[in-house]
Design a binder for these strands. Structure first.
Lengths: 221, 221
DNA sequence: CACGCATTTAGTGGATACACTAAAGCCGAT
DNA sequence: ATCGGCTTTAGTGTATCCACTAAATGCGTG
């Protein structure tokens, strides 16, 4: 459960907080999001909560059920659909990043990568957040707000699945290697290579995600 | 100006109405969207208007300026970015439609196409709407809500440019031909062909759009 | 005449009160 | 015990009021 007391909350911060709750799994799939309950929890009126919920609904993190809004349930089919699109867009994004990057973009990516490499046994949450940050930084390097925006949206579609793919076996180390090679390609301004590396990186993530889903179905919670 | 009196308006209908205003060009680029003004126009309080404006902001049809929300100004760079992504996604969408379509999808597309072919000298608005409907029907045929949703969002990013590309020269007739061939490929379950036809269709649209933009810059309003 | 400062004001953000709707509980009849 | 209809109630949708902020405006001064 995310903090409630101590900080003053406005619509925007509530949006972020709830988003964080959903993505981190603190709010379980299918759970109801009631305006009054949340308003009490954040110590505000229903108005800003409503604004936040509206946004989350448009981001497809919530769905409207019989009685108000609920945390969206993910189904395997949709997860695959999201990954398929993400594969295309991440590849395109990496390509554009290779062509449009400036030196500060490279520095930022380098910094993130080194930080990740220096972590010893990071938590699942940490891995997820850092991974998101790296991909987001590639988005920045592409200097294409439209594409970046779309990817951001798609990423959050997935993350509220039970566990990230980055805690499976040695996937985290593997992913960092892949990040390193993508970064190298971007740094070399080699759009083709960046694109195909990014594509393979995401395809790999999709495979692992599918394994996770299959495992979840045979051994339900 | 879209209707104000006569019909009762709730948040949702206001959202649609304003959206329509923006996409049709009734609300000019850069124009202010004031809560009180709109509330008066629709004969409701500020509350539902605020909800509608919030949604439109998230759809990137409005942007937050110094003094509230304004109809977003399109810049050439962004238009190209949107088209580039649309090209990819429409191609993928056509491909998936070819693989996933059922007979009712084909019937629907056929119906829309024949309707469009039977029109004599349709208005610019009519062309835009009908074109959107056809593309949207391809989305339905793909049976991929994630992809369809994304495309829907992207389409509306563009349409509030001054004029559609479908009123340039004989582009409308040309577009219908292209629609016909895409439909044929989808009907044949030929994903590869559908994809490349859709890609070319959108690339053509992008070229024309670029011409329009260049023309607009040399002869501003 | 231009510049800086105080004042006004246009406009949004949040709180609260009221209206409406439909699901859930309840009770009696068969 | 079960079904039909009534009542309750949980929950959202809208209206209105107050609070706050920052752009515009006007006024005095150099």
């Amino acid at each position: 459960m995310t903090a409630s007391t101590g900080t003053r909350h406005d619509g925007d911060s509530i949006h972020r907080a709830l988003r964080e709750d959903i993505l981190s799994g603190a709010s379980r799939s299918g759970e109801a999001m009631r305006e009054v309950t949340l308003a009490e929890r954040f110590g505000v009126s229903r108005t800003p909560v409503r604004q936040a919920l509206g946004r989350l609904e448009q981001e497809r993190l919530l769905e409207r059920g019989a009685r108000g809004l609920f945390v969206k349930r993910v189904d395997a089919r949709e997860v695959v659909q999201v990954y398929d699109i993400r594969i295309m867009l991440e590849a395109e994004c990496a390509s554009q990043a290779a062509l449009s990057r400036d030196s500060s973009d490279i520095a930022r990516l380098q910094g993130l990568l080194e930080r990740d490499q220096s972590l010893t046994d990071p938590s699942d949450r940490e891995r997820t957040v850092n991974n998101l940050e790296f991909h987001s930084a590639i988005g920045v390097a592409a200097h294409n707000p439209v594409l970046t925006d779309l990817l951001q949206r798609l990423s959050s579609h997935l993350i509220h699945t039970p566990r990230s793919t980055l805690s499976v076996g040695n996937r985290w180390a593997e992913a960092l290697q892949e990040h390193a090679s993508i970064l190298a390609a971007i740094s070399d301004r080699d759009g083709i290579r960046a694109s195909s590396l990014a594509r393979r990186h995401m395809e790999r993530a999709r495979e692992i995600r599918l394994d996770l889903i299959r495992a979840e179905f045979s051994q339900p919670s």
